[in-house]
Nucleic acid binder design. Structure first.
Length: 187
DNA sequence: AGCCCGATGTCCT
DNA sequence: GGACATCGGGCTA
């Protein structure tokens, strides 16, 4: 299967968030085993203009440095003392936008949140700032698009009440997928 | 179904 | 010192 290329990640951030639904996140472990999960929930973070983004106002620190990378680079950060979250950088180098992968579905079923999926797929600091278009351990494979009428939009979750950013419709999920938390996608 | 809370490290003020 | 792009358990009903 073909891996997603630079052109894919160079689309508008919101379009990348929608287009990533249905694609396959792959982590090849040192022992050669591949962990694979189908992306079923994403969320866009619109860089300097987005009060909910780590890069709001153009903040550039050791942690947020990855967000300033080329499209297709991973941004993994540590949160709440115990969880990692996996993002893919979008927008041109120097423009700190990204898409958070909020849930994947495994072939044996089983849903996940952004922290759980990193634990399940053994993703941590070691996989930060990888170029997913060339990396030998982490990448995303192409797969059929989810039809527009099966994509749910929803308000954001877990970002407090920063301005109105909570209500921006930047979170997307695959309609009816059991890996989504249904309560967070109101009808 | 909801709400509250503790776990536990790192970042930023 | 407070907040945090989270999760699971325990509670109220």
């Amino acid at each position: 299967m073909k891996r997603l290329d630079r052109e894919f990640y160079s689309q508008e951030t919101i379009d990348v968030a929608r287009a990533l639904l249905g694609k396959i996140l792959v982590h090849r472990l040192p022992n050669g085993r591949e962990l694979r999960g189908r992306i079923v929930e994403t969320e866009a973070y619109l860089g300097a203009e987005d009060p909910a983004a780590h890069s709001f106002g153009g903040r550039r620190t050791a942690r947020t440095e990855a967000m300033f990378s080329k499209p297709g680079v991973s941004y993994i950060y540590f949160i709440y003392g115990m969880h990692f979250c996996f993002n893919v950088v979008t927008a041109p180098e120097g423009t700190p936008e990204a898409v958070l992968i909020r849930a994947v579905e495994f072939s044996d079923g089983g849903g996940n949140g952004p922290g759980k999926l990193c634990r399940a797929m053994h993703l941590n600091r070691d996989q930060n700032m990888r170029d997913l278009t060339t990396d030998q351990e982490v990448w995303i494979e192409d797969a059929p698009n989810i039809p527009e009428n099966q994509i749910l939009g929803g308000p954001r979750v877990g970002i407090g009440d920063r301005h109105d950013a909570v209500h921006w419709p930047l979170r997307f999920g695959v309609r009816g997928n059991p890996a989504l938390s249904p309560a967070k996608f109101p009808p």
